[in-house]
Design a protein around this nucleic acid. Structure first.
Length: 138
RNA sequence: CGCGCUCACUAUUCUAUCGCUUGCUUGUUUAUACCAGUAAGAGGAAAGUCCGGGCAACACAGAGUACCACACCACCUAACGGGUGGGAUUCAUGUAUAAAGCAUGAAGCCAGCUAGUGCCGCAGAAAAUAACCGCCUCUAUCAUUUUGUUGAAAGAGGUAAGGGUGAAAAUGUAGGGUAAGAGCCUACGAUCAGUGGUGGUAACAUCAUUGAUGGGUAAACCUUGUGGGUUGAAAGUCCAAAUAUAUCAGCAUGCUCAGACAUUUGUCAGAGCUAAGAGCUACUCGUUCGAUGCUGAGGGGUAGGGCGUUUGAGGCUUAUGGUGACAUAAGUUCUAGAUAAAUGAUAGAAACUUAUUUGUAAAUCAAAUAAGUACAGAACCCGGCUUAUCGGUGAGCGCGCAUU
RNA sequence: AGCGGCGUAGCGCAGGGGUUUAGCGCAGUUCUCUUACAAAGAAAAGGUCGGUGGUUCGAAUCCACCCGUCGCUA
């Protein structure tokens, strides 16, 4: 990738905020576990003109203090921000909009290298599921 | 110099790359929005939610009951169950002694069991207006006898001095007194209550005097006094998609007339009426109700969004007053505002602490290596309390050692 | 954000109005019965009553503060 500059920002409108969409994700969405993450996603209409909206979640059950939860969420957000361009490119080729929720399901803190490598794995998985059928139709 | 305690302050720093939220400015744009620049961006506990207040909505003549909370005195405060100072009590340490005491420090919901009720296991005669044993007197009987008496068992009384208990046993000691005893009397004390004097704003202390002396427990029910209306920003208020819809207006189905088709019901198109009709009433007037669909208006209001929302009992400095909490005056300052929830991620360096090793006669000096740098994240805002916390700085106090 | 309840043996519960040995059921252990297992019967063991302080002569119980856990308000 030499020509266009990579989009590494992560602004407010790319956050998944609507409570209705989140609840519909957990009732109707598809799910896959890529340890230490659980990904829940679904195609639907989003309130903002962006290809993907993402939310991150860390359960209170395993991390009682808010400081630990915030730190893990910040690390997840940073890794997503740095590597999201592949998913965005694929989704902007299609006409669909994607809502994704990523839940941290490990019970202990994990090093940043693991968080980063597994997040890249997740993004690659999502982008593959939404590019392949489109190319077959073409 | 080392150790400990108390109080106050502080809560690692810098660089590079990439990024987040908010405000302001410029440009593009009808506007949202986007680009660029610039400024700001977690705490001492933001935590627990244990108290108090502001603020908001609802309720409310007044009084009482219930319920809840509090409880030595004075002061501080917007208020408090918080704080400051003082008093009494208890405990610890030191000192001293026959015992009290004195000094220092700490602690606590320190109103009232002399308003009433309840409770006090085991042990013990008895756990509350105590006679089981014991001691003493009297009565009559029996035995004995030195004719004074002594003993036995029985009855009637008196008596709280003594009795292996227990957390607690009826005001302690000494003397008098008595049949035996007893605050029955006296002296020195103890506790409680009243009156008066002195000191103190007061709690209280102290002295004098009078009277009394049947335990503990209210963090037992309760009594007395004081205070409390209820609910909490998911309060409240404004705007307002989609869908359904109260209500209003118009049109149509409607009603009447005649015509065509058709076995009657019915179907088709045309003209007229905005009512027809029903209820109330003997009648009129009057008044109320009046199905369905479409279109438009429209109220409440869901999703969502705005305000509430960060200038406030505000912070800092200085001066004055006060033992102090704190107050007053002057000057100065504006310093987070997110909402699946911003304030960061990664890399490197420095600083500090601890440990080990090496150098040096030795070290608190120097170097190297390793580990560590806490607790913890605003969610309407303040004042406290409680709990968590690697460390650092300053002040005061105490102890130990060394030197003079 | 605002509230309320519950922590007792491995598990599920009593006991709370104060003092006597903290009990019940199930499970586990040992023994009896049986050729053996199950069932039944008997016996013993297992608890600092979530933690720390306080009130009291005495606290599982009363009071205060913490810790854990469950639930409600939408």
């Amino acid at each position: 990738m030499l020509g266009p500059k990579k989009d590494v920002s992560f602004k407010k409108k790319e956050h998944l905020k609507s409570q209705k969409i989140i609840s519909s994700l957990f009732t109707n969405g598809q799910s896959k576990v890529i340890f230490p993450y659980r990904i829940v996603w679904r195609t639907c209409e989003l309130p903002q003109p962006v290809p993907v909206q993402v939310a991150f979640s860390v359960p209170t059950r395993y991390f009682q203090t808010a400081v630990d939860r915030n730190r893990i969420k910040r690390q997840m957000r940073e890794t997503y921000r740095a590597h999201k361009h592949q998913l965005l490119d694929n989704m902007s080729n299609t006409d669909q909009q994607l809502a994704v929720m990523i839940v941290f399901i490990a019970k202990n803190k994990r090093p940043f290298s693991l968080i980063q490598s597994k997040m890249i794995h997740c993004i690659r998985f999502l982008s593959n599921t939404y590019t392949n059928p489109h190319e077959e139709n073409l």
